[in-house]
């Protein structure tokens, strides 16, 4: 009986395990092997064992610096906008409107990020927002193809990913806790800081993690809204693989990016664990 169960479970898990191995571990292994190889004179990959690619990483220092600047800033900006929105949806909106508003938050996700980012080109371009600003007296304001435009695109693109975990955390919030805080003498803003915020931290951490990790690999939004002038590691990778076809160096850059992401996840895990140690309502997500 137990034997059958074990075998049954193993059988059930096999597709998942194979899937995981084929789609995640295998490519990762290939990238790792490539990163120690050499570039052939016409590009591509030649087998070898050299650390030259890793030694060359400083050549993409600017890309890493840009990514490691804009990813946290973008995450923070998304958080600052997503939190009030999630709070509004979870706490303030009546049940009647909630579903509709939640759907409105998701709807943009049904369209390709490429098309949505293109819409921003028109919004931020000369005949969009700047034209409106010009009509009220603010002449010659240029928004497109700047780090600001990239930030706008990032916040816009990743907002739902930030809104939903926070929404879920706030949805679970027992509003009587806020009444209890008020009853004990806490004015609204203080009960927000002392009760609401800490209790929604799991959502904040999860959302920030999701957005941060995805931003680390972002290349589309800087390419479209940054006018090619804002250069992320993701853009460096695209260029290395598709333009100069320097696969070994591209692989080394990719490995470095993965390592940075792993470190970030490790820090996240540690923070959540420490947090969860004092809580029954926090679980790893």
């Amino acid at each position: 009986m137990a034997m059958t169960q074990t075998r049954g479970r193993a059988l059930l898990l096999t597709p998942a395990a194979l899937w995981y191995a084929a789609l995640l571990l295998l490519p990762l292994a290939v990238v790792l092997i490539f990163s120690f190889g050499e570039r052939t004179p016409i590009g591509g990959y030649a087998p070898g064992f050299t650390l030259a690619q890793y030694a060359n990483l400083p050549a993409r220092m600017a890309a890493f610096r840009n990514t490691l600047t804009l990813a946290p800033v973008g995450t923070l900006a998304a958080l600052l906008i997503a939190y009030p929105l999630a709070y509004f949806l979870a706490v303030r909106v009546s049940v009647r409107w909630k579903t509709l508003l939640l759907v409105l938050v998701i709807v943009p996700f049904w369209t390709s990020i490429l098309i949505r980012s293109y819409a921003w080109i028109f919004l931020l371009g000369g005949k969009g927002l700047p034209a409106l600003l010009a009509s009220i007296g603010f002449e010659d304001i240029r928004l497109l193809n700047s780090p600001f435009a990239v930030l706008v695109g990032i916040v816009y693109g990743y907002l739902p990913l930030m809104v939903f975990p926070i929404y879920v955390a706030l949805e679970k919030l027992d509003l009587r806790l806020l009444e209890a805080a008020a009853d004990l003498g806490a004015p609204p803003w203080r009960s927000f800081v002392q009760i609401t915020l800490p209790l929604s931290m799991p959502g904040v951490l999860t959302g920030s993690m999701l957005v941060f990790i995805l931003l680390m690999g972002e290349f589309l939004i800087p390419a479209i809204l940054g006018g090619g002038k804002v250069f992320f590691v993701g853009n460096a990778l695209v260029d290395l693989f598709l333009q100069s076809r320097n696969w070994p160096f591209g692989s080394a850059v990719a490995v470095a990016l993965v390592v940075i992401m792993l470190i970030t996840v490790a820090i996240y895990t540690r923070v959540v664990k420490r947090y969860a140690a004092g809580r029954d309502d926090v679980a790893m997500m």
């Binding site: 009587r176 209890a180 009760i195 209790l199 809580r279 029954d280």
Partner: peptide, 11 residues
């Protein structure tokens, strides 16, 4: 007030 399900702060 003592609340119905106590409303103690879980954190």
């Amino acid at each position: 007030m003592v609340f119905q399900h106590y409303a103690l702060f879980p954190h």
